[in-house]
Design a protein around this nucleic acid. Structure first.
Lengths: 220, 220
DNA sequence: TAGATTGTTAATCGATTAACAATC
DNA sequence: TAGATTGTTAATCGATTAACAATC
């Protein structure tokens, strides 16, 4: 496959989102400049990204919206829905189960898992099963993506079971590093780290304003 | 200030986390190699990061754990707790309010806000106020960081009010681009995008295995 | 001292951006 | 045609990594 990194794939999804909005406004064709404005990148980035995936338009004529969406759907595998699971039915896990944003992207959480028997059951619209049933469920339903939303101390163990079960991609909310085989795709959402870095830069900004009030004000 | 990007700051926090763990095991001094192993980066990266912030050790002697933690605390502003707010008391907002991971990092959510009167009140341990009171609250308590956890359609408006109120840093969970003055620090957590990219790479991996079964197996 | 580790300068690498020829 | 836009090659930029002198 080609040299497409995470950022590049994210941009493709954003181009697609922009295209869908533009289509809903009535656009029939777009130029790389339009997509660039919509996503906030240079037009040359758009064309570069497209060229990596052989997404071509018409010299001088831009791109046909419908065709481009269709091609992006194909590249991004958006034509068929994907079933995923969540392990951990605490604060984060519960929020994800009820989160409305996934379904419209064709992502369906089909089951949650928790070790706490008081949390398991079928009261929600999706079942909450004991974690001991994780492996069987994943194999039976051929799940390949799962979310880890358990306490730090349990995360590695859960990850191990997931991988044993055949899961290939993991979104991990536990703020620790997990040991994984190289061929497993893992992304981390580290909420405290996100906040901490924001706080750092806000503080840095404050220090800067205080230290160099003159230049700072001129520059802004 | 120096050329420290988000990744670099994140690594500093990770070094600090590793140091705290090593200290709890009884380490008194560490080498850049130890920190590198703990965080999963090359040792040269560790020393480079430190040099940017003037964090020095002893040639041949490594770094004194306590001193290094203290210096990192100073650089990262971890010596005083930070109060933040959350706007939107839906799934995500509620999960964040109850999330246990912030407090140990000195981050305290002091209030949540929602437009829905049925969600406001003081039943939780932190107050949920009407969004109309956001500006007053932020000014009164001098809050500089806030989280956006409202539906997409409301996110830009909430961001505008936050900035008017004096907030300088925002963590945004709404999967849309927000227009901001340049001096506002904004980070995005886009959950659907995280899952979508994982799904993409998992699919890409599957295709690869199917297309080049021989080389693939050899390589792994 | 000899060996090990730091701190920094230089090289590499990958991604972004600019330039521009192709062409509709 | 002339002008505008694509697609690609080359240049730039920033971050990571390697090399190595300094030194404890």
């Amino acid at each position: 496959m080609l040299k497409a990194n995470k950022s590049c794939i994210e941009r493709l999804y954003r181009y697609r989102n922009t295209l869908i909005k533009l289509k809903s406004i009535g656009f029939v064709k777009v130029f790389s400049d339009n997509l660039a404005d919509g996503v906030g990148v240079p037009a040359t980035q758009v064309r570069k990204d497209f060229s990596i995936f052989g997404l071509s338009g018409n010299k001088r004529g831009g791109y046909i919206v419908d065709e481009l969406i269709e091609k992006l759907n194909h590249v991004l595998g958006k034509n068929k829905p994907v079933s995923i699971i969540v392990v951990g039915k605490g604060n984060i896990g519960s929020a994800l189960v009820h989160y409305k944003g996934f379904e419209k992207e064709g992502i369906k959480i089909v089951a949650a898992f928790d070790v706490d028997p008081s949390k398991t059951g079928h009261t929600d619209d999706i079942p909450v099963l004991p974690t001991s049933e994780l492996k069987g469920f994943v194999k039976q339903h051929n799940i390949s993506v799962g979310i880890i939303a358990v306490p730090d101390a349990a995360a590695q163990q859960v990850a191990d079971v997931m991988i044993e079960s055949g899961i290939k991609g993991i979104l991990n909310f536990a703020p620790i590093r997990l040991n994984m085989p190289e061929d497993i795709i893992i992304h981390h959402v580290n909420l405290e780290l996100e906040l901490e870095t924001i706080i750092y830069f806000v503080n840095a900004l404050n220090r800067k304003v205080k230290q160099e009030p003159k230049q700072w004000i001129e520059k802004n």
